[in-house]
Design a protein around this nucleic acid. Structure first.
Lengths: 148, 148
DNA sequence: CTTTTTAGTTAAGAAGGCTTAACTTTATAC
DNA sequence: GTATAAAGTTAAGCCTTCTTAACTAAAAAG
């Protein structure tokens, strides 16, 4: 990498501003629903990745299994996730979002992305089309990075 | 807005994947440098917005001025920011990054955006040009949202 | 079949972040 | 010029998160 060229510059600027925007409504919703950030993050992971074990949570968030267990326990008591025994390995637990947890997260996502609708209103039809195309290209490329 | 159309969909997907990517190296760097997330976020704000008063910090992060004062104090003692009296209003303090704080954040930013360079490698010259243009348009529009 | 590993839980305690409340100092309003 | 408001600090205490350590139960290894 020699210097921040035009592409890098453009991506950085957008990532910055979009991340900031998204985080705003995000932590708002977390607070409003009485959840702490870690709790909310765990629910978020459940939403995108589906059922998992406790160990996966502790790995992903780089906390001890004790900490993960405590978080999960709180969320279970709040009725937001379900914890059942894994039939194939009775030491392990299967953890998944409850219906209540799911709808909660979906509301949070709506909150997180409301600004995108406002953004759309500030653009012409043509601009929306062209930027959407560009983002699809970028998203594709980013996904490939994840797999490598 | 009636339903998530193509534009919204594309923006969401990209925001998701880019935010995730950026956050990864991000909290890593924060931990590695012995700073908590709130502390790191404050430094980040200083970096992008320059000098500010204490009240701006408490507003931006939605914490009391007491909490902001404590954070700032820690950062001053760590040599990462400087706190001086505002000559125009002697009640107020001017808070700005120190050289040490600046280089620290810049290292963090490098960490945060390393993946963008990898992303660039996966695209053709033409794609880079066109996506960069689109992102400039989006960034502009998002900035306008902030001002309204 | 015994030993060791793995998954998870529980309890106790340390560390950090945030709040309220009381206070100082300076600016603004009347 | 006095009263009020604003910027910031300090101290005390609450709450959350996280960790370590001791534990149970089940699977895997030998």
């Amino acid at each position: 990498m020699t210097k921040p060229d035009q592409f890098t510059q453009a991506v950085r600027a957008w990532v910055d501003i979009s991340a900031q925007r998204s985080m705003r409504g995000w932590s708002h919703h977390a607070k409003a629903s009485g959840l702490s950030m870690p709790q909310f993050s765990i629910l978020m992971q459940m939403y995108y990745r589906g059922t998992c074990g406790l160990s996966e949570i502790s790995e992903r968030f780089e906390i001890t299994s004790a900490a993960a267990s405590q978080h999960v326990d709180n969320l279970v008591q709040a009725g937001l996730i379900e914890r059942t025994e894994d039939p194939h390995d009775r030491r392990a637990k299967n953890i998944r979002l409850s219906a209540k947890g799911k709808s909660m997260i979906e509301k949070g996502i709506g909150e997180r992305y409301r600004w995108i609708d406002q953004l759309a209103e500030g653009l012409s039809e043509k601009e929306r089309e062209r930027t959407a195309e560009a983002l699809v290209v970028l998203t594709e490329a980013a996904r490939k990075l994840d797999q490598s």
